[in-house]
Design a protein around this nucleic acid. Structure first.
Lengths: 156, 156
DNA sequence: GTGAGAGGGTTTGATTTTCCAACCCTGCGC
DNA sequence: GCGCAGGGTTGGAAAATCAAACCCTCTCAC
């Protein structure tokens, strides 16, 4: 086991292999905002059309987006998130929250999400089991593959 | 207003501009696991050394990582997350949770995070104001820039 | 005091991606 | 029959990635 040649097996890396390329998560953002048509995506994301076409194929293949006909003649399509795609919403929220906190002044947020409780959303990640907000120092990492111990404060 | 040439202003895009390149979030992962040395990063991530050097410079410039001397002679460094970097932890958790759910069988998760409550962590994003788990359909998006209305189910 | 590492990178040259602009096709609407 | 909307594809130049080799400093064993 000692000297692994392959990188660490990891769900973060696996997920990023599907949605980590440039523009992919922005496609998800637009689709979740209801802007699932090719031209809307090009405009709202600012991506080259050919790259966008490649990304869309990939996301459809991965089961994250579905392609739906909204007009038969002429044939026109719209991309929508599948259930698996919708479950990426937490990723988008946490990315947005970080950018709001660290890249924008308080009055300068590009978009505000209003929660059904009436307040502007500030997302907090909690533990499903106990309900407490998760803090990194309260986690212990247990790699499941042999040879992949970790060094740091959360050694396991 | 009417016909925007620029893409949608958005904190998701802004954040990804800093950490969305290939390997950047994996660097964060390793650093948070306590593996902040160049060689560890190369091995555990599987990235080319030159690319890694580029990413590290960028993350340090962005204030996400700090470079710390752990040995004077010979001079040796270690990268650590700054407070801003640590606040990206929720992004990593949500990415990991998605991969665990959608890319791995139940018994096949590459890593388990144990919460201080004693259970394996399942992260849930909640609203800081009301404490409820956030569901996309309970959100209303309010773009703050003129001309950037949205089309979808969450129009605002 | 020389040779073999460890650690932290940089350099070089080939391969891939991205990017941009232009083009293509279908089917309206006039 | 002309122009436009929508949804792409194509071609060639520019940029990023990759793998392997190299460099430099210092330490340790011999």
């Amino acid at each position: 086991m000692a000297a692994p040649k392959d990188p660490r097996p990891c769900s973060i890396a696996d997920t990023l292999a599907l949605v980590g390329e440039k523009y992919s998560l922005l496609v998800l953002r637009e689709v979740m905002l209801g802007n699932g048509r090719f031209d809307q995506l090009v405009r709202n994301i600012g991506a080259p059309r050919d790259i966008l076409a490649t990304r869309l194929r990939r996301l459809v293949d991965a089961g994250i987006l579905g392609k739906h006909v909204y007009s038969e003649r002429p044939q026109r399509f719209e991309y929508r998130a599948t259930p698996a795609g919708r479950e990426l919403h937490p990723v988008l929220m946490t990315l947005m929250a970080w950018g709001d906190r660290h890249l924008h002044a308080d009055g300068d947020r590009p978009m505000v999400l209003e929660h059904s409780c009436g307040k502007a959303l500030t997302p907090v990640v909690t533990c499903a089991a106990c309900g407490d907000p998760v803090r990194q120092e309260h986690l212990t990492a247990h790699p499941q593959a042999p040879g992949w111990t970790i060094a740091g404060p959360a050694a396991g």
